[in-house]
Design a protein around this nucleic acid. Structure first.
Lengths: 156, 156
DNA sequence: CGCAGTATTGCACGGTGTTGCAACAGCGGG
DNA sequence: CCCGCTGTTGCAACACCGTGCAATACTGCG
């Protein structure tokens, strides 16, 4: 039966370390563990990459139809403080949440095809360092979102 | 005085060339000159720097109480195509319009004090060139908005 | 000057997020 | 095991912005 080769990230209910400790992390801050937050955590644990706010609201509603948007958004604020998600604004100003940011990075999004890519810190280093030296400005890479045309769309 | 050095593009107050020719520029494209657009142009000509969409709506309403938001936003779209304004998204995803962009440039905004600064193309050159070379991605500088902490707020 | 054609307007409605507030419910203590 | 403190929720209302659609009014033309 599938032996121990389970390390191959397969059927995985996706519930690794970070999410498991959320409850304790909340308690440690005097914050509370509620059914609504549990739902959101479940949804997040089952998602990856980028999601918009309303998308998360929808998914939560799928689990618990009684879900209310404001609660989800407020819960996301809390989780952002814990560093479990980060958000930035897409081309249209809509919120995009980034789940479990493994490393600070920005985003690149094509104005035409709307695809997005991650922008590792390294590629933005000269900008961040330059601004830091020249102006004392400390860039928040996770909120950085660079718009433009991707290679494919430039061709067209 | 200052002789022919007039080439130094400065003296005009708030109603220089660009706005005066808007009507012709619209006509040249088969677009129309309407009272609503005139109001917006007046408002824009009297403003400088950055303004949010709703701020413009308010100012237009001050001139003509019958102003409707959707009309203003659509007019702004048109003016953006003419290159008279450009917009980007502020820290909160709200639209920020930049009037009469003299040169492509991005924005820097402090997450704490909410002040914003312009980011001249030069300072972002390494980023834009780097992305162009490495990924064939062509950055749209005018939509670039970099968040973070300004020197003052970093101190605090 | 009046007409026809089409760009625009106004309006109503939809989507995404935020906020104030009263009621509720975790969580620790007695 | 019940109590109370305080963090949270749900609701309702609001703000900002976009869009579909029918009515309107610029514009160029005859």
């Amino acid at each position: 039966m599938t032996a121990r080769a389970a390390s191959e990230r397969a059927p995985q209910p996706a519930e690794p370390a970070p999410w498991a400790s959320v409850r304790e992390r909340l308690r440690a801050r005097g914050l509370r563990w509620t059914p609504q937050r549990r739902v959101l955590i479940d949804v997040l644990a089952a998602s990856t990459g980028h999601v918009t706010g309303s998308e998360l609201v929808d998914r939560c509603r799928a689990v618990d139809p009684a879900t209310v948007p404001s609660t989800v958004y407020r819960a996301l604020d809390v989780l952002e403080e814990l560093g479990l998600v980060s958000h930035s604004h897409g081309h249209d100003g809509r919120e995009e949440f980034h789940i479990l940011p493994d490393a600070a990075h920005g985003h690149l999004h094509c104005t035409r095809c709307r695809r997005t890519w991650e922008l590792p810190a390294g590629e933005a280093a000269e900008l961040t360092i330059g601004l830091h030296d020249a102006r004392g400005f400390s860039v928040d890479l996770s909120h950085l979102s660079v718009g433009g045309l991707c290679a494919d769309c430039r061709g067209a």
